[in-house]
Design a protein around this nucleic acid. Structure first.
Lengths: 234, 234
DNA sequence: CGGCCTTTTGACCATGGTCAATGAAGGTGG
DNA sequence: CCACCTTCATTGACCATGGTCAAAAGGCCG
């Protein structure tokens, strides 16, 4: 294994305000793992043996219901923590995490969580802020699902995705990882058919361009108009 | 104001494992406030000047959207903290809290949050566990809204309510505070009409009894069958 | 008693889900 | 390099769920 370096994590908001020597010690206790595309980082209900930091790639966090439905909870971008069941007082992972592309993660054994939290106040402050943000995201999503039409929800989902993982191209803003109609459906509580129909319609109107596991938002501003529910009904 | 006593908060899970003398000091810094029915404890977007503990009554936490929709985030029962924006790293309340009946709350100034968190490790551990639980509740709700029919969601909502605030009567389990069809609709992302129709149907089947701002679950077990989606379609 | 709020119920209809079939893109092995 | 196969996307037809609109009745309070 290549030797790990504190430069991997210096500058990340989770570790901000922590001394260089401490960063070295933190990184020293991590294992670096390569996860191939479509392979799990951890799985729902599994014992939460580790927590993770995504260094490179994109990860999809999915919750499955007993009756076989899957819901995408969120996508993780580089620099974010995941599998932080410990911060929620859990001993098992509440969801599964799947590599959307080949990924590199750092993994720490779960029992280090309390050590880090105790020794690095800014670490615990930052992670709890993360949990707080995720709580607010989840509430925002409940509200969207309660009050918005499918069309608006899908538009919001795309806007969130380009905000989090958009890459500018000359055609527009590309969502920088493979994402299928089915994936968008699982983020918005609808079906791949409806997503497909809407993307086709939007493509006709020049709002987006899309292809196999690829979405480019051409006109974010007009998409925002749709998301806010003030769009002409064609 | 009547003098406050640590017996008010001893035994609550948030304060468990804290010495009697500390409890006295904690209670000593609180103000006790009586909130009349339908009055706000705090309001969305307001500066988060205080955090609260509900001593008696029931409080409805509501988020309003810019376009006038309201969504009920949760109901608070006695012994629970609320208005803990500080734990989420916020300076304003993310939602409003309305007294559903006459209530009594303890209020602490917001700047004490960090003091409590620093001096009483079990306080901060317990509150973060609370935040973790709420995050999981929110995710559970997203999943319900994505995968379940209205009928199931309403059944689940009623089951949660009787679990949290049910009082046994000879007719069945009563939800122990006034709750309208509209309220149930705002918990489940539907309309009061649909809730009314379903409650009427369930009343005919002997599952529930209901009246003006009153719901009694007569047969929790059969309601659970409905909630899980394995009910005869009449 | 009068007025207001909550609930009920009916009729109608739109959104979006279900079912089904076809087509395009990419990957793999011969 | 081509043939085949799998996965993903498209599109049409149909229809059920549940939202909208409307009207009326019941309960509660001043």
């Amino acid at each position: 294994m290549a030797s790990l370096d504190r430069s991997l994590i210096a500058g990340l908001s989770v570790f901000e305000g922590i001394a260089a020597a401490d960063l070295d010690r933190i990184v020293g206790q991590a294992r670096s793992i390569r996860i191939a595309k479509d392979q799990p980082v951890f799985e729902q209900e599994q014992d939460a043996h580790s927590f993770f930091l995504l260094l490179d790639g994109h990860v999809r966090v999915v919750k499955s219901t007993p009756d076989g439905h899957e819901v995408i909870v969120r996508y993780i971008s580089p620099g974010e923590l995941m599998g932080i069941a410990h911060a929620l007082g859990r001993t098992t992972y509440p969801a599964s995490a799947i590599a959307v592309v080949d990924c590199v993660v750092l993994a720490w054994p779960g029992q280090l969580w309390s050590t880090f939290a105790a020794n690095f106040p800014s670490f615990s402050a930052n992670t709890y802020k993360t949990v707080g943000t995720r709580l607010q995201d989840a509430h925002a999503r409940v509200i969207e699902m309660s009050t918005e039409q499918v069309e608006q929800r899908i538009a919001h989902a795309l806007l969130k995705l380009i905000k989090q993982s958009g890459r500018k191209t000359e055609e527009g803003i590309l969502i920088d990882f493979p994402i299928s109609r089915q994936d968008v459906a699982e983020m918005t509580g609808t079906t791949l058919h409806t997503v497909s129909r809407l993307l086709s319609a939007w493509e006709d109107q020049g709002l987006v361009k899309s292809g196999r596991q690829r979405v480019i938002v051409v006109e974010p501003h007009r998409l925002l108009v749709v998301a806010e529910g003030r769009a002409a009904k064609s």
